[in-house]
Design a protein around this nucleic acid. Structure first.
Length: 545
RNA sequence: GCGCCUGUAGCUCAGCUGGAUAGAGCAAUGGGCUUCGAACCCAGAGGCCGCGCGUUCAAAUCGCGCCAGGCGCGCCA
């Protein structure tokens, strides 16, 4: 069944065609139909008339025309259309509203999904932490965000590849090896210092303890050992966090396969390279960057950017329709040059989205926790999971906009009280389960619920709840366009709120059998949407508390 | 100095791409358990949407300029 909202938008488009020509002029082709902000404004609202209004044709007049044209479409689900201060407010038939529940119950797997991304391939790169140390909470936020986005896009019909770019080459890896070697020698009585710009974190001491002996014929032993061990523990942490990747790409492989040289040749062919001051430059200013960038240094070695462009070239040649990069805030200066590179290689810029996930500041109550990666003083994702649990951590990371500088209060996340939204959701879920168990004990079956007379759901709390359920597909659709994952968390909290309120005011299992069945059907529908939303956000909830 | 992000209720934040009287949660105040779990619900209170100018029928939302906070700015990675 096609969504009511979609059908309204289509009908409105047709209605526009019947307007007097002068009113059609400014029509953008876009028709917004959104859930109404207030009950008195009906179920859905459109501002189309306001958009089309002209100096001598006020919105109310246009709205009148549109309403007239719309009525000729004979929309069977519509009760009435009201025009109010230029808005068109649509009121659905009560029956239509309630039938939504049956739709959910008969197609629990697909309700909310859509064909927006049908036939489209997305490459989603995220985390991509260097294998030089444990994952930080910044990576945690990126991981939680990326995984949820991947799930939502998949639900919206996209074919999503989650990819991790493994930065296992370059100077940093040499430094890592030297740092580990120093720690190893320190453990064996020498006072070798850790290089000044090396890695001073305690984790390298732990790693050095694991080394039993150093093979003499392997000059790069420490580098290899460190990269392997750290990568492994990164994967372990991610797995525990519920995040998995479909593909790992190694920077080293790029060098070995000559990908970087091939990329340089491509850029050369496109006329985007030039020599100056003994170096090879990429003319990124032609594509909106504020200055040109060096790719090959004076000494013949590559900058960090060169293999990264090669990686993005590899993303492009694999034929993705959409490329999404999720980066930390320390990379925001990097965005223009990356976009420039992609454009220079001939990929349309509007098909690459670079999302910068902003910084998270940790608090313990009032106390702000200072962190410095360089000195090795930070709280790792692993420590965070140990302290508050993976699910609470994920929820806190996801329920704010990516661009917002997040305050994460460890105390709050652990608190088992009303201040903690995670428990609010868990409680709603547990209540849903208990209701169903109780109903089963009282002899109500799920099959009976499917036949329930849904028109009995007349309470205002029930209307609000049904309307919220009906908004679910719209939320999924919007997120797949805006990539704003937090909207699903907002939606879920609102759903839980409406449910708690309804539960408080009305008994589900009551003396009237028909009403009980209708309400149980609503509970089941809630359970479907609730579980789906939780699964998309990658958050699990307990069955009891 | 330049760039990116942020500034909305005491606190943490939404605000569906420019719409109707700016919304939640928490904290504080008052109220609600003999019935499906009160980790819940209900009510009132709380706002120059950082400041100014502009665009528009309409601005928290768009543009420009300030102010404040965070982060970044290498032939480092």
């Amino acid at each position: 069944m096609k969504e009511v909202r979609e059908r309204l938008a289509e009908a409105l488009k047709k209605a526009v065609d019947r307007l007097p020509a002068e009113l059609r002029e400014g029509f953008s082709g876009q028709v917004a139909v959104v859930p109404s902000a207030k009950k008195e404004f009906g179920d859905f609202t459109s501002n189309l008339a306001l958009k089309l209004a002209r100096k001598n044709h006020p919105a109310s007049e246009v709205a009148g025309f549109l309403k007239q044209a719309l009525l000729e479409e004979h929309l069977d689900f519509l009760d009435r259309v009201e025009e109010k201060s230029g808005f068109l407010n649509f009121f659905l038939k009560k029956q239509t509203r309630a039938e939504l529940i049956r739709t959910i119950l008969t197609s629990p797997e697909t309700f909310g999904s859509c064909s927006l991304g049908a036939g489209k391939k997305v490459l989603l790169e995220f985390v991509s932490a260097n294998p030089t140390g444990p994952l930080t909470i910044a990576h945690g936020r990126q991981a939680a965000f990326g995984e949820a986005l991947a799930r939502i896009l998949t639900f919206a019909g996209y074919q999503v590849t989650r990819e991790y770019y493994h930065n296992d080459a370059g100077r940093q890896i040499r430094l890592l090896g030297q740092s580990l070697k120093a720690r190893y020698e320190q453990l064996h009585g020498k006072d070798t210092p850790v290089p000044e710009d090396g890695y001073h974190g305690h984790y390298l001491i732990d790693l050095a303890r694991k080394i039993k002996s150093v093979p003499e014929d392997q000059p790069d032993f420490f580098e290899k050992f460190a990269v392997e061990e750290i990568s492994r523990s990164i994967r372990e942490d991610l797995a525990r966090f519920g995040v998995t990747f479909d593909s790992y790409i190694s920077e080293q492989t790029f060098h070995q396969q000559g990908e970087v040289q091939a990329t340089l040749r491509d850029l050369e062919k496109a006329g985007c390279l030039y020599q100056a001051e003994g170096a090879t430059w990429f003319r990124s200013t032609s594509f909106g960057d504020d200055k040109d960038r060096v790719l090959v240094k004076g000494d013949g070695s590559l900058t960090y950017l060169a293999p990264d462009i090669a990686y993005h070239r590899y993303k492009i040649v694999r034929g993705y329709d959409l490329i999404i990069d999720i980066l930390g805030p320390d990379h925001h200066g990097y965005v223009p040059r990356l976009k420039a590179a992609v454009a220079a290689l001939g990929f349309p810029q509007e098909k690459i989205h670079i999302i910068i996930v902003q910084l998270t500041t940790l608090f313990r109550g009032q106390e702000k926790l200072r962190m410095s990666t360089r000195a090795g003083e930070f709280i790792s994702l692993r420590q965070l999971m140990d302290e508050v649990g993976p699910d609470a951590a994920k929820f806190f990371f996801i329920f704010r906009r990516a661009e917002s500088h997040l305050d994460f209060d460890l105390k709050l996340a652990k608190k088992q009280s009303l201040e903690n939204p995670v428990y609010y959701l868990q409680y709603a879920h547990v209540r849903l389960l208990h209701l169903q168990q109780f109903a089963a004990q009282q002899g109500f079956s799920q099959q009976e619920c499917l036949q329930a007379d849904l028109s009995l759901l007349q309470e205002k709390e029930e209307e609000a709840l049904i309307k919220q359920l009906g908004d679910f597909p719209g939320v999924i659709e919007r997120i797949s366009q805006t990539l704003e994952v937090h909207q699903l968390a907002e939606y879920l909290l609102a759903l839980a709120r409406f449910f708690h309120s309804w539960y408080q005011h009305h008994r589900v299992v009551n003396q009237q059998r028909a009403l009980t069945l209708a309400r149980l059907a609503l509970v089941q529908a809630l359970q479907v949407v609730f579980s789906r939303a939780m699964q998309l956000l990658n958050i699990s909830v307990p069955d009891r508390m």
